[in-house]
Design a protein around this nucleic acid. Sequence first.
RNA 1: GCUCCCUUCGUCUAGUGGUUAGGACACUGGCCUCUCACGCCGGUAACAGGGGUUCGAAUCCCCUAGGGAGCACCA
Length: 475
Amino acid sequence: MTAVMSTKTRFAPSPTGYLHVGGARTALFSWLHARKHGGKYVLRIEDTDLQRSTAESINAILEAMTWLGLDYDEGPFYQTKRFDRYNEVIDELLEKGLAYRCNCSRERLDELREGQMQRKEKPRYDGHCRGQFVPDDAPHVIRFRNPPEGSVIIDDQVRGKIVFQNDELDDLIIRRTDGSPTYNLTVVVDDLDMGITDVIRGDDHVNNTPRQVNILQALGKTPPRYAHVPMILGDDGSRLSKRHGAVSVMEYRNQGILPEALLNYLVRLGWSHGDEELFTLDQMVELFDIADVNKAASAFNTEKLLWINQHYIKKADPTHLARLLSPHLGELGIDPAGGPDLVEVVRAQQERAQTLIEMAEISEFFYRDYETFEEKAAKKYLRAVALEPLRMMRERLAGIDDWAGETLHQAVIDVSESLELKMGKVAQPLRVAVVGRAASPGIDVTLELVGKDASLRRIDRALDYIHARMEENAT
RNA sequence: GCUCCCUUCGUCUAGUGGUUAGGACACUGGCCUCUCACGCCGGUAACAGGGGUUCGAAUCCCCUAGGGAGCACCA
């Protein structure tokens, strides 16, 4: 009886740092593939490198996954807890003569490699210990006996057919001198034990694939399907690194990027569906197909990310956004509780910010008086001609008890009309007076949210400023 | 050096033998307008190069150039 194997993918980061955007995209693709096929998504921590793996990295990766909302059905599994199982497999290979002990010294290996390099050959192990008897009570490693001839054909879901000749491969170490198993062995065992049907990973792993397939075949197992996704480059087309700005997923959160925006941006890097640019997670699940992923690497473009982020800010629920915005205001030393309703502020600014940081910055004036006028704005609008309109506005506003947008809007209209001025001639100086700079939401909303007391106080300040300036010019 | 792979506007991409080579970001002209932003209308801009195959190539084949990944007792 043959059971139909349901789809199962995994994301298998090694905890040697934070989760970067390339890894996040691979995780997203794996997650989408599993969800699309109604399968399972597994998280596995590949921490067999005891030197480089850290608990901080594990936490950072889990936190990033949670923030992105890429929930896993199984795991996280830790390879360090599965050493017994790996040894069991290695011993099996050893017994069957599919692996052998090797006690070549590092010196010999180094010399071998050096000589090969000099002769412009591909550096690889020469099989020195293959037929030798190597005692098991002295230090040694275990090597996998790679098939000497024939070829391995991989039908990659992204790359298509890739062929490797076995004579290009060497006998790789599967157990170190200290007894710990190595990567190529552990992935094979884990993917097998965990029932992974689709291995979706970065294309830096393509060259490992034939070795893994050979181990799998030695164990008499059928390899999973593979899909190697291309890497992500920096803005300038070179390998993505810190100098390109943020590469860590959590850094994007800190910069005020919404997770749905980052996910949407990432899914469009190397994948598309006609002319569509915007996808909800549900749409991605429905439309994504690993076979549609491009083979070529793509460059990360922050400006497009910002555009997508603005899109999601625009359509986000204001209450939800307010919660996300709060900490960013906190960064500026602002406690939203001490001012206008944050949700209303969000509504007023929603179309004006590309990131939450930007939204916090342009909302500062709602919560506290500006320190100084923005120089250009003051120079342009706080001048003698604005004196009368401002005075009149001040007088009119002082008499308003019903401090609401509609009333305030009417007040600006009335003052404009009575002075026979265009609305801009009144509203702009008023805006600079109240917010300290030349840009803000509509003047009525702005006044309403700033509040009566603060508005009048700031208008007085602007009037003083104009007077001072006039005196200065007079002398 | 060897192995594997990639190449459409500046960037992300659509395109699977016949298209004025489409869309998006960015840039830019205009409209809207109390500012900014949003929105709307328009513009600049690409098939790496060279050979084939074909009536016809961005699409198929070969070569060249450029780029990437891997070649550890890392993953």
